[in-house]
Computed example of a mutant assay.
Amino acid sequence: MRRTLRTGATTLAVAGLGLAAACGGTPEPGAPAGGGGGGSSDVVTVASWGGRFSEAMVSALAEPFTEETGIEVRVVDSPGNFVSQVQSQHDAGNVQWDIVDSAASSDAQYLYDQGLLTAHPDGLRSTLEAELGEDKLNEYSFTFANHAYVIACADERVEACPTTVEEFFDTEDFPGRRMMPGDASSYSQLITILGQAAGNPVDAALPVDLDTALDELRGIKDDVRVWWTSGDQMEQALQQGEADLGFMYSGRAFNLVDNGLDLTVNWAGVYTPGHTALVADSPNPDGAAQFLEWIASHPEAQAEWSQIMNYSVPHPEALEALPAEEAERLSDWPANRALIADQNVPWYLEHKQEIDRGIQQLIQGG
C-alpha cells in the first residue's frame, strides 16, 4: 500500500495502458479533468470532487481497473455540483456521466428520488451484498469516502481548541478566526451542526427549529472569515492563516497533520458518508457497473485509496488491512463514530428550500 500517488503529475484520464497526465489549470465544473470531451460510450466517465479526491480515484482505482480490464475510465471534476450537472445533462438529453463518486447523502437521495440515479442491476447488487454487506448499501448506491466534518485548530494560533460543537460556537471562551462550510452541497451537514449548537444531543441533532438554528449561525458570523466551498480551500485557509479554527473534512485535517502543520483535530461534528452510484440513462451503463463491481471486490485497492485520503471505505477487509494508527483516524472507528452526529436526510429534504434559502441569505449578508 502506498501513501503517495504513483506519479508527480495528476493523472485524470486513463485509457488502456496509455496514461494521460492532467492538464494545468482548473477545469470547469463537469468538464473532463485532463482534457477531452465526456460522454463517449467507449469509456466510463466518473464525476468526482477534484484535487486529491480525483487523484486518489485515478491512482488507487481507475488505473488498476484499466490495467486489468482494458476499459478506459475518465474522471471529471465537479466539486459540489453533482445535482445541477446531472439535472442539466438530463434536461438537455445529453447525459455524459456514468457514475457519481461519493455524492453527499442529501444530493444522492434527491437525485434518486428525481429518477436521475438508477437502482443497482441484479448482478451488481449481488456482488455488492456479498463483498460489502447490506449495511453499506441502499437500493442505488454504496457508501464510499465516509468521513466527518470535524473541528480542527491551528495550534500556533489557538490557545484552546473546542472539543464540542457548542464550544465552537462560544467565541468568547474560544476566540479565533473561524471557517465554515459555505457550499450548498454541505447544507445538510451545516444544519446538523447548528442543531447541536442549539443544544440538541449528538444522537438527535435534528430536527431543529430553523430560526433557532440560524440564530446560532448569526451569532458567530462576524468571526467566520472563510466560507469554504472545496477541500483545497479549507486546507489553504488553515495553512495560510486565513482561519485559525473551523469545521473541515476529517481526511483533509489529517492531510495537513501529515504535511507538518501543528493541528488539533477533535471529533465533534457530523458523520458524512459518500454515496457512489450509477447515473440514469448514462452512455456506458455496462462498463460503469463493471467498474463498481471491481471496486467492491478489490479491498486492497480500497485500502490504498483510504491511505491516500484518510477516509473510510466500505469493505471490512480493507479497514482490517490498515495500520491501527491510520484506522483510528477514520470516521467509522468506533470511538470517533460515537462522537459525531448523523444527518437526518429525510427531514432535511422535506425542508430543503427553506433551510437552503435561510443559510444562503445569512452567508450573503442577510
Rank of each mutant, 00 (worst) to 15 (best):
G8S: 14
L17I: 11
L17Y: 10
A21D: 06
P29D: 14
P32L: 14
A33K: 08
G36P: 05
G37W: 14
G39K: 15
S41A: 15
T45P: 00
F53Q: 04
M57I: 05
S59K: 12
L61H: 07
T66Q: 08
E67H: 09
G70P: 05
G70E: 14
R74D: 01
V76L: 10
D77T: 12
P79D: 01
Q85G: 03
Q85F: 07
V86D: 02
Q87R: 15
Q87S: 09
S88W: 06
Q89F: 05
G93P: 01
V95E: 00
I99W: 04
S102E: 00
S106W: 02
D107V: 03
Y110Q: 02
L111F: 09
L111G: 04
Q114P: 11
L116Y: 02
L116C: 06
L117I: 05
T118A: 13
T118C: 10
P121N: 03
T127S: 04
L128R: 02
A130D: 15
E134G: 09
D135A: 12
D135G: 00
S141F: 05
N146T: 03
V150W: 13
I151D: 04
A152G: 07
A152V: 07
D155A: 13
V158R: 03
A160M: 13
F169M: 03
T171L: 11
D173K: 13
R178H: 12
M180W: 10
G182N: 06
Y187N: 01
S188V: 09
L190N: 01
T192I: 15
L194W: 02
G195W: 04
N200C: 13
V202L: 13
A205Q: 08
P207L: 09
V208L: 10
D209S: 05
L210S: 00
T212N: 13
L214I: 10
L214W: 05
D215A: 03
D215I: 11
E216T: 09
I220K: 01
D222I: 09
D223K: 06
D223E: 14
V226R: 00
W228F: 06
T229W: 05
T229E: 15
S230P: 06
G231H: 07
Q233L: 10
Q236L: 15
Q239R: 15
L245Q: 15
G246S: 14
G251S: 05
R252W: 12
N255D: 09
V257S: 01
W267G: 03
A268W: 00
H275R: 04
L278G: 08
D281A: 02
P283C: 04
N284Y: 01
A288H: 10
A296T: 08
E300R: 11
A301M: 10
I308M: 14
M309E: 02
M309R: 01
S312A: 09
V313C: 02
A318W: 09
L319N: 07
E320C: 11
E320W: 00
E326T: 08
R329C: 08
L330P: 12
L330N: 02
L330G: 10
S331Y: 03
P334N: 04
N336Y: 01
N336H: 06
N344T: 12
L349E: 00
K352R: 15
Q353Y: 12
G358L: 07
